[in-house]
Design a protein around this nucleic acid. Sequence first.
DNA 1: AGCAGAATTTTGTGATCACAAAATGACACG
DNA 2: CGTGTCATTTTGTGATCACAAAATTCTGCT
Lengths: 234, 234
Amino acid sequence: MPLRRTALKSGPTKTATGQATSRGATREQVDVAIRTGLLAGRFIPGKAVTIRGLAAELGVSPMPVREVLQRLAAENALEVKPNGRVQVPDMTPARFDEVLKARLLLEPELAELALPHLTAGDAANLQSIDNDIDECLVSGDAEAYMRLNHAFHFSIYRATASKVLLPLIDSLWLQFAPFMRTVYGRVGTASLVDRHKEAIRAVELGDKQALRTAIAADISQGMGLLGKEILAGA
Amino acid sequence: MPLRRTALKSGPTKTATGQATSRGATREQVDVAIRTGLLAGRFIPGKAVTIRGLAAELGVSPMPVREVLQRLAAENALEVKPNGRVQVPDMTPARFDEVLKARLLLEPELAELALPHLTAGDAANLQSIDNDIDECLVSGDAEAYMRLNHAFHFSIYRATASKVLLPLIDSLWLQFAPFMRTVYGRVGTASLVDRHKEAIRAVELGDKQALRTAIAADISQGMGLLGKEILAGA
DNA sequence: AGCAGAATTTTGTGATCACAAAATGACACG
DNA sequence: CGTGTCATTTTGTGATCACAAAATTCTGCT
């Protein structure tokens, strides 16, 4: 039983809404659907995900789902077990340390590279996102918080038009996001801290070093402290 | 017409040689076949690669090839153009700089993490690989050199049993390997320099900092100098 | 009731098909 | 001789099928 029949596709070359579909459009839609679901924490680590299940839920044939699952497995966002079953990998302390280390190496670097491309308008946009984040923190909407936090960071990183570093960081976010969702589910969102305002100020001033430290601190405090605590308790 | 009929599969559950095939074995074989081909530089950047072509060459149906190509595209080892065609992405100066930067950030780090796990036997194995590399340099076998150089680095990195950093570095190698093959094709292998002996000595001594600098220097000199020169001339 | 074993259903995999878009080649016209 | 146009072929995509392995459920025995 499909949870929600989004009916991505109906006609051969046009969708019900009249929108033209180009090459690989179905796969693309399936890809963003699953990807955003992962980043928003709508998938539970350890929970198996079936091809036919997702296909039915999205109203498409198993075919594009198979390919997307393979893609996400290649990015280590999903794990293919020896029997072929696909599941969201569950977090281990060793894995968590590695993701944290990799983030601290790559994200400040890409932020610095992005800095020259960021305009005043971008800074204002970041400010707007951060305001929405503050609302989510008090309202306790963890899913919206994760979506906005992702938008905040990648609004910076994407300014580089990077084709190498950015995909690597993308892969990292896909790996830790589902776990962080479970963390927020336990500790709530009220205790979350970030260094976004420092980052915005660094962007406005064009201060490379300040941006690096703000991003690094944001990662260490937002992810590092919470995660280590949970993993120690589990 | 298949260039070489390797006939990976014939029967439903057994192959012609009587070897038992388990779940996803065909895809696995296709994956390593293309992956090693990429790392050895047997694919030319910019050259399109067709599903049916590879399928015929490997003696399998297009199905597993499709999934493997999607995987490699997700790792940025291959590029899917808007029309759906898949090709080895060609190198640009910006892309090259990013790969170099990412390698310098990640590989010394993972090498340092690997150091405590490396035994005297591992050091001897590295020495053996490096001896083979020296032979390739004088004989001019670029493909064997690339394979051995990859084996050298990943013999170190794999000691960590890393599930995060290692795949990231894997992705990077898949991205620059095809380009480097073209570089070696132009300048030959005689002029290649590496810092492998320093790295081996650092492993033997258990010197973290020395290993880091050896790896970093190996990357900068082996890849950085050559690549920048070629890209400048192109 | 507890549990081993068989029957049934679910699931991933590889193959094949139909179709449309794109690339390629042939060919006539300026 | 170059060039635009049309026919042919190639190619990716999504769907469906057949099959085997795995998971699940049911059943019968102790």
